[in-house]
Write a protein that binds this DNA or RNA. Structure first.
Length: 240
RNA sequence: GGAGUUGA
């Protein structure tokens, strides 16, 4: 099954989810039994394509076949529904997994948080964030970056800088994804120069530079554009 | 062998 699961993962990444059915018939002929990890990988593929109904249907088929969902399979479902902005359903799954006696973990809650951010409910996202800490999980960089991104999209930059400080206090390293999130947030509100300053204090990647250049283009700041172009060439970063 | 964060 492990081998087949790896194949499913690869097929799904290439958008060839249709071919999974053939794979399953082959497995059945060989007497290979599907397990929860196999289904998760398959469901994940449907969610990537935004096919929520199909994903949920496979989840149901799985349970009907007596295969118990686990924490990861629920989290995959929750994340998929959150990404589409269907947080109500995601929260429903969260409830369901608790009823099944499963404990949501940091990844699960981060996915929920992201769902609230996605639909612009930053207050609710913050509540989830507090709950994470209440439950004794240590919020990691991904959790912070997710919340920071949500705040950036709301234009609440004060809060963003507060969280960055909090990360530092807790010894959580803010990597380039986190900084790029902040850089993007600043560029979006027309503060590209401030974003630029931040980028000078970190190891910027092609995301950072292209975000800055885009910000300068929007601001029609030709000097900024050229200067950023010079910096990225100097840094030897390839932009795609 | 499966899950969470950033740009155009």
């Amino acid at each position: 099954v492990a081998t087949y699961t790896a194949v499913v993962g690869a097929l799904c990444k290439e958008g060839k989810i249709q071919e999974v059915s053939d794979l399953i018939s082959k497995m059945e002929k060989e007497g290979v039994v599907l397990d929860v990890v196999f289904y998760s990988s398959w469901i994940c593929g449907y969610l990537r394509e935004g096919m929520l109904t199909e994903a949920f249907q496979k989840h149901r088929v799985m349970t009907e076949n007596g295969i118990k969902p686990d924490c990861v399979s629920y989290t995959i479902l929750i994340d998929g529904f959150c990404k589409e902005g269907n947080v109500e359903k995601a929260v429903g799954f969260l409830q369901e997994m608790k009823e099944d006696g499963l404990n949501p973990n940091l990844v699960t809650y981060t996915a929920i948080m992201r769902g609230f951010c996605k639909i612009g409910k930053v207050e609710e996202a913050f509540e989830v964030f507090r709950k994470i800490e209440e439950l004794g999980f240590r919020a990691d960089e991904v959790t912070y970056a997710t919340l920071i991104d949500g705040l950036c999209r709301k234009g609440n930059l004060d809060c963003v800088f507060q969280l960055l400080e909090e990360m530092e206090d807790k010894g959580i390293n803010a990597g380039f994804v986190t900084y790029n999130t902040v850089i993007n947030g600043l560029c979006k509100v027309g503060k590209t120069s401030q974003a630029d300053e931040i980028s000078k204090g970190i190891v910027a990647d092609n995301f950072s530079y292209s975000t800055l250049i885009h910000g300068y283009i929007v601001e029609r700041n030709i000097v900024g554009m050229l200067e950023t172009k010079r910096r990225l060439e100097e840094a030897g970063v390839c932009v795609d």
